[in-house]
Design a binder for these strands. Sequence first.
RNA 1: GUCCCCAUCGUCUAGCGGUCAGGACAUCGCCCUUUCAAGGCGACGACACGAGUUCGAGUCUCGUUGGGGGCACCA
Length: 497
Amino acid sequence: MADDRHVRVRFAPSPTGKLHVGGARTAIYNWAFARANHGTFILRIDDTDPTRSTEENTQIILRAMRWLGLDWDEGPEVGGDYGPYRQTDRMQLYRDAAQRLWDEGKAYPCFCTPEKLAADKAAAEARHDPFQGYQRTCRDIDPAEARRRIDAGEPYTLRIKVPLDRGDVVVHDAVHGDVTFNARELDDFIIFRSDGTPTYNFATVVDDAMMGITHVIRGDDHLSNTPRQIMVYEALGAPVPTFAHISMILGPDGKKLSKRHGATSVEEYRDAGYLSDAFVNYLALLGWSLDGETTIVPRDVLAREFSLDHVSKNPSTFDPKKLDAINQAYYLAMSDREFSERVLVPELRSAGLEAAEGALAHDDAWYDLLSSILKPRTVVAPDVVGKARFLYEGDEVELDEKSVEKNLAKAGARGFVTAAVEALEALDDGAWHAEAINAALEALPERLGASKRKFFGAVRVAACGNQVSPPLGESLELLGRSCTLARLRCAEGIAAE
RNA sequence: GUCCCCAUCGUCUAGCGGUCAGGACAUCGCCCUUUCAAGGCGACGACACGAGUUCGAGUCUCGUUGGGGGCACCA
């Protein structure tokens, strides 16, 4: 094992799309593993597929990484001693490495056409040959002959020459243990395409070897081609890293998570109003546990306690409900001030309730009070907008039809509102606080011979416009004396007698 | 077809030979309560199946079944 070396791990996304939740989790594990072991976390852009990779996607991924708070020690924009950190900028390195293997007789040119390869494979399949890989057709072509054909312009690929006596390959995996692959499965796979570009299995290994990667933490889907990658390490004479293959993330139907299951990209969750900390917390727990009991694992704890041997082997199902629960737990843990600054005000601004920039309509105490009542009612950030809107409608609230029908339209409602107006008028501006407001209204239902439910329901709709609202006392305090009384008087006019 | 991986409540998981199989989310009920939440208490609910090994198996072995992944001049 290479564990005694300084830990160096990498996250190497392909910019063929946005950062997916599965990729995000892989990134989180790599980051956390590096931090927990005082190692180095490297970000590398695996963009060897020119047709599908875009610069735009690269930027989206970098942005998502920053939003997730996964800072990298080496990589794009921060540099490092093992760069460049984009595969397209490393082409010469792959060529050099391949040339070296060729010179050393560990790789050889293959002139088989794709058609021949397909035919060979079909034939192997037809005779039920357990070995369906490359038939090593060009393995023993005389070097001089090969040279001649190359010089004549014949297209060729470069294949790795797997030693015939290699024997079984065992992958030492930190989450799966030792996984043995039969030597028979290994074939002389292509390391360089006929167009002169390296294949993934070759490029990644060259990179990981040159970058001194000690632990390769990646998706389960790579386990099967790890043996061939090991062949490359061996040919290169580089130490084989420790692998850690983590299971996939599935959708609610047990199928691999995809678009049809809803949001799959990190930025969609950011835009939906999830907290980065909560999102990282949830994803970290999807396949890893601290102790089996703890659900709230802040980033710093993750960075300290993360360990590969608590990584689960089974695939996990993405559960939006649990994400919600964790997100809400993070809000609940915030102080009113923090909630106000990080959640409430930004949402009010982007919803246009508050000016996009500059001074706010109220003082800090007002937002803190609002935060205190909205916090336990918020699952995702944008929830605050709908719940705070009634505070921004001036003296005439928009009355919810159904609420009016079930409250103000009921007999006696006018009397309730009138009584409330009288009681509240007795309070002057200086005494306009939730506690005093509640005290002033408290005795009224009994005096009027009405249930609290009916009385407060009528007042609530009159002042807040809806039978569902944050606590009444605080709501009226936030509304202010004059606005509250204006709304109540307005409702008196339409309330049933 | 072949190779590999996986298998504990609906979901995420704890468990690393002897546990009343624990926690969290979800669901349901009760409490609190002027609405909605939040909170408190409680209920429901799992070792896929079959053989072994063992005094004893969720834990070890093999098989079955069921999922997933690889076998590309994709990554």
